[in-house]
Amino acid sequence: MTEYKLVVVGAGGVGKSALTIQLIQNHFVDEYDPTIEDSYRKQVVIDGETCLLDILDTAGQEEYSAMRDQYMRTGEGFLCVFAINNTKSFEDIHHYREQIKRVKDSEDVPMVLVGNKCDLPSRTVDTKQAQDLARSYGIPFIETSAKTRQGVDDAFYTLVREIRKHKEKMSKDGKKKKKKSKTKCVIM
């Protein structure tokens, strides 16, 4: 069974824990209790493949930012979460993405942009803004509501699919490099 290491990042209060708990335990946590770091595991079937999701729910508070490099190193894919009623959390996505790329030393890291709290009427981040940002990053965008469960499975499952595509691409690139290195030079 394939294991996928997913990391949920975003500013404090955007609903990272609520999304994760909704996926794992099928219930909505409405009281806000700032996370330092929590880890969850769940076995699911995605596109006919049974897999184990190892999900790291991270601290959004700035005082825990020193811990970010460590979990970013171990993560295979990242859910970059903002709240649709919090423009600052949307603007912060850029910083999370840049930090992930720096730590992973790669421009090509599996990510999904997630606009959470889409059940709320007080939207300050337009869907088109988020779609445009995701398009500019070359990553999928999904709106979710941890409260109603809308888009929750889709967000995590899409990230797994992005990781699969990335692994497939990397193995193809690896095979191309191996083929090239088999060419021999004969000096007579």
Rank of each mutant, 00 (worst) to 15 (best):
T2R: 13
T2F: 05
T2C: 12
T2L: 04
T2Y: 02
E3V: 10
E3G: 15
Y4I: 13
Y4K: 05
Y4R: 10
Y4E: 04
Y4C: 09
Y4T: 07
K5E: 01
K5L: 01
K5P: 05
K5C: 01
L6D: 00
L6T: 01
L6S: 00
L6A: 01
L6E: 00
L6F: 10
V7E: 03
V7K: 02
V7W: 11
V7P: 00
V7N: 04
V7I: 03
V7H: 06
V7R: 14
V8M: 01
V8N: 00
V8I: 11
V8Q: 00
V8E: 00
V8F: 02
V9H: 01
V9T: 00
V9I: 09
V9S: 01
V9N: 00
V9R: 00
G10H: 00
G10N: 02
G10R: 00
G10Q: 00
G10M: 00
A11P: 09
A11Y: 02
A11V: 10
G12S: 08
G12A: 09
G12P: 11
G12F: 02
G12E: 09
G13I: 10
G13R: 05
G13W: 02
V14R: 00
V14H: 02
V14S: 10
V14E: 03
V14P: 04
V14L: 06
V14M: 06
G15L: 00
G15S: 00
G15Y: 00
G15C: 00
G15W: 00
G15I: 00
G15H: 01
K16C: 08
K16P: 00
K16R: 10
K16M: 02
S17D: 12
S17L: 03
S17N: 13
S17T: 06
S17G: 10
A18G: 12
A18I: 02
A18Y: 02
L19V: 09
L19Y: 05
L19W: 02
L19T: 14
T20S: 13
T20A: 14
T20R: 12
T20L: 13
I21W: 15
I21Q: 15
I21R: 15
I21C: 15
Q22G: 12
L23M: 13
L23G: 15
I24Y: 06
I24S: 15
Q25L: 04
N26K: 12
N26L: 02
N26F: 01
N26Q: 05
N26S: 08
N26I: 04
H27W: 07
H27F: 07
H27M: 11
F28S: 11
F28W: 06
F28C: 12
F28A: 09
F28V: 10
F28T: 05
V29G: 14
V29Q: 12
V29K: 10
V29H: 09
V29M: 13
D30M: 03
D30V: 06
D30L: 03
D30P: 13
D30Q: 14
E31C: 09
E31S: 10
E31Q: 08
E31L: 06
Y32N: 14
Y32I: 12
Y32E: 13
Y32F: 12
Y32G: 13
D33R: 08
D33Y: 07
D33E: 13
D33N: 09
D33I: 08
P34R: 06
P34Q: 14
P34M: 12
P34S: 11
P34D: 06
P34G: 05
P34F: 08
T35F: 10
T35H: 13
T35N: 05
I36F: 06
I36T: 13
I36A: 09
E37W: 04
E37A: 08
E37C: 08
D38K: 05
D38I: 02
D38V: 05
S39Q: 04
S39D: 11
S39V: 08
S39E: 11
S39M: 08
Y40A: 13
Y40F: 10
Y40T: 15
Y40P: 10
Y40H: 12
Y40V: 11
R41Y: 06
R41G: 10
R41P: 14
R41Q: 14
R41I: 04
R41N: 09
K42Y: 04
K42P: 08
K42D: 07
K42F: 07
K42N: 08
K42H: 06
Q43I: 04
Q43L: 04
Q43H: 09
Q43M: 03
V44K: 08
V44E: 12
V45I: 12
V45K: 11
V45C: 13
V45M: 06
V45G: 11
V45F: 14
I46A: 06
I46P: 03
I46T: 02
I46L: 07
I46H: 05
I46S: 05
I46N: 07
D47P: 05
D47S: 04
D47T: 02
D47K: 02
D47M: 01
D47W: 01
D47E: 06
D47N: 11
G48V: 02
G48Q: 07
E49T: 09
E49G: 05
E49F: 04
T50K: 14
T50S: 07
T50H: 09
T50Q: 02
T50W: 05
C51A: 04
C51T: 06
C51W: 11
C51D: 06
C51K: 04
C51M: 04
C51Y: 14
C51N: 09
C51G: 07
L52T: 15
L52W: 10
L52S: 15
L52D: 14
L52R: 12
L52M: 14
L52Y: 13
L53S: 04
L53Y: 02
L53K: 01
D54L: 01
D54V: 02
D54E: 15
D54S: 11
D54K: 14
D54C: 04
D54W: 01
I55A: 10
I55P: 09
I55R: 04
L56F: 09
L56Q: 15
L56H: 15
L56S: 14
L56A: 14
D57F: 15
D57E: 12
D57Q: 06
D57S: 10
D57V: 15
D57G: 06
D57C: 13
D57K: 01
D57W: 13
D57H: 12
D57T: 12
T58K: 04
T58W: 04
T58G: 11
T58F: 04
T58L: 08
A59G: 14
A59P: 12
A59F: 06
A59I: 03
A59H: 12
G60D: 13
G60T: 08
G60V: 05
G60C: 06
Q61L: 07
Q61W: 05
Q61S: 12
E62N: 08
E62W: 02
E62D: 13
E62Y: 06
E62Q: 06
E62G: 11
E63W: 01
E63D: 14
E63S: 10
E63P: 11
Y64M: 11
Y64H: 14
Y64W: 08
Y64D: 15
